[in-house]
Design a protein around this nucleic acid. Structure first.
Length: 423
DNA sequence: TCTGGGGTCCTAGGACCC
DNA sequence: TCTGGGGTCCTAGGACCC
C-alpha cells in the first residue's frame, strides 16, 4: 500500500526571516499580517510568551519588546521564493507531490518504499534544512488526515519525524488526539462534538456514519474515514486553475473620498487581472465590495455588487470599468471606509471563446496582445513598470508595512550584505 | 492610534422548466 | 374551485483550510 508523507515547514514566515538573520534564533519573533495588523506567525519563544495566533499587534507589542522580541511585516516575495525552493527539493523524491499551501506538501510514495519510510523522513528533513535553512516537520501514515496527526506529534518531538501504521499504534494515538486537533474539524464542529461528549479522535471513529454525516456533512464523514485508515481525500495536484480570484486590502487609515476608493479598486482589479491571465482564464462576473471598520463604534455600512460582463474577458481596462460601475452602485457618502476588494467568478479558459459566434474572442485579439506585452514588461522590469493611471500615483490609502525586511532573494537591489557581527 | 487575506467545498432553499 | 412530480441550476451562507 502506498503511504503519505506530510512535510510542513516550522513557523514558516519566522523561519524565512531567520535564514537571513541568524541572530534571531532562540529569540521571540513574530511576523505581522498586511497593514501590520495582527500576528500571523510566531516562533516557539513567542508562543511561550502566550502570544496567540491572530492577536492584534498593538495588544502584544509591549510584551514582545519587553522580552527582546523581533517583529516583522510580512514579506511575501521572500516567503514565496523560499517556498518554491523547498518544494523543488521535495519534488526530487520518487513520490507524487501535492503542494498544499505555501509551507506544506504531501508526498505520496509507492509501496516499494514502505520498508524505509523512517529514513526517508529523516532524509527529507535534513536535505531541506541543509539546502534552504528552513526547518521542517515530517508526519508519515496511511492517509492524508493521519499524516496530519503524525505531523502534529512530529512538531513537538526532538527528531521532527513521526510515523504510525499498525492498528494498535494508530488507536493509541487517536485516543490522545483531541477532536479540535483533527484536520477538517474546526472550532464550530469541535464544539458540536464536545456537546455530544465526544472529545477524542478515537471516540469519533466509533460512531455510526449516518450520525456523523448528519452532524458534520459529507466532508466530516470523509475525515472520519481517513482516520479509520481509508484514503478518500483526493489529491488536488491535478487542479491548477482557480475557480475564483480575489484581491482585497484594508486601508492604512479610514478612507472617505470616493476617488481614493476608485484608485484602490483599480489597483486590486489590476492585480486580479494579472492572476487571471497567469492561469489563462477569462472572467464574466466582477464583484466589488466595500466596508467600514467593524471594530469601531462609528456608523457601519458594508455592501457588495456584482457586474455581469457581456462576454468573458481578461483585459484589465474592461475589468476596471466594471469594478467602477460596481462601486458607483454601492458607495454611500459619509462613512469611514476600511476595506474594499474585487472578486472574479465565472472563470473560463481563454481558448474556450475562440469559436463562439456571439462574442469577440479574447484569445488572439488585440487586447490579448496588449496584455501579454504589459505582463511581460512588468515581469521583467518589476511590478508597476506599466500601470493604469486610474490606480493613482500617491496611493495614500495603501497598506502599512513599517517593519519590512529586504527581498533578499528576488531583487538585485536588495541582496543581503553580510556583516561580521552576524556570522 | 493600531484588529489580514485568499481560497475550497457543501447544503438548503428558491426559481424555473417540462 | 380544484393544482403533481421530478429535475436542474443558481445563490447565499456556513463550514473549513493555510
Amino acid at each position: 500500500m502506498s503511504f503519505v508523507v506530510l512535510v510542513d515547514c516550522n513557523n514558516f514566515y519566522v523561519s524565512c526571516e531567520r535564514v537571513f538573520k541568524p541572530c534571531l534564533e532562540q529569540r521571540p519573533v513574530v511576523v505581522l499580517s498586511n497593514n501590520d495588523g495582527c500576528v500571523i506567525a510566531r516562533s516557539k519563544e513567542a508562543k511561550e510568551l502566550g502570544i496567540e495566533m491572530g492577536t492584534p499587534f498593538f495588544k502584544c507589542r509591549e510584551l514582545l519588546l519587553h522580552n527582546g522580541g523581533s517583529i516583522f511585516s510580512s514579506n511575501y516575495s521572500l516567503y514565496g521564493d523560499l517556498s518554491s525552493r523547498v518544494m523543488q527539493i521535495l519534488s526530487l523524491y520518487p513520490a507524487e507531490i501535492e503542494i498544499y499551501s505555501i509551507d506544506e506538501a504531501f508526498l505520496v510514495f509507492p509501496e516499494s518504499y514502505s520498508d524505509r519510510y523512517i529514513s526517508l523522513g529523516r532524509d527529507i528533513r535534513e536535505s531541506v534544512k541543509k539546502m534552504t535553512g528552513i526547518p521542517v516537520s515530517v508526519g508519515i501514515s496511511k492517509t492524508r488526515t493521519l499524516a496530519k496527526v503524525a505531523n502534529h506529534i512530529a512538531k513537538h518531538s526532538q527528531s521532527g519525524v513521526y510515523s504510525f501504521f499498525t492498528e494498535q499504534h494508530i488507536q493509541s494515538v487517536l485516543k490522545k488526539t483531541p477532536v479540535e486537533n483533527i484536520w477538517g474539524i474546526g472550532y464550530k464542529y469541535a464544539k458540536k462534538l464536545q456537546q455530544n461528549n465526544i472529545y477524542h479522535a478515537h471516540d469519533l471513529c466509533g460512531l455510526p456514519d449516518t450520525w456523523i454525516r448528519k452532524l458534520l456533512t459529507k466532508k466530516g464523514l470523509q475525515t472520519v474515514w481517513e482516520l479509520r485508515g481509508v484514503s478518500c481525500i483526493e489529491s488536488t495536484a491535478i487542479r491548477i486553475e482557480k475557480k475564483a480570484i480575489n484581491t482585497s486590502r484594508s486601508f492604512s487609515y479610514p478612507v472617505t473620498k470616493k476617488t481614493d476608493i476608485y484608485e484602490a479598486l483599480s489597483t486590486f482589479t489590476t492585480l486580479n487581472a494579472e492572476k487571471l491571465r497567469k492561469q489563462n482564464s477569462c472572467t464574466q462576473i466582477v464583484c466589488v465590495y466595500l466596508s467600514t471598520n467593524r471594530f469601531k463604534e462609528t456608523p457601519q455600512y458594508s455592501s457588495f455588487h456584482s457586474i455581469a460582463l457581456p462576454f468573458p474577458t481578461a483585459e484589465t481596462s474592461l475589468l476596471i470599468k466594471a469594478s467602477f460601475e460596481g462601486l458607483d452602485r454601492i458607495y454611500r457618502e459619509g462613512y469611514l471606509y476600511k476595506k474594499t476588494g474585487c472578486l472574479f467568478v465565472a472563470l473560463s479558459s481563454q481558448k474556450a471563446s475562440i469559436n463562439n459566434l456571439f462574442y469577440p474572442s479574447y484569445y488572439d485579439s488585440f487586447s490579448n496582445n496588449m496584455m501579454v506585452a504589459m505582463d511581460s514588461l512588468n515581469e521583467k522590469y518589476g511590478r508597476d513598470t506599466l500601470y493604469y493611471a486610474s490606480s493613482g500615483i500617491s496611493r495614500f490609502w495603501s497598506m502599512k508595512r513599517e517593519l519590512l525586511t529586504s527581498a533578499y532573494t528576488t531583487s538585485w537591489k536588495q541582496l543581503k550584505e553580510v556583516e561580521y557581527s552576524e556570522i
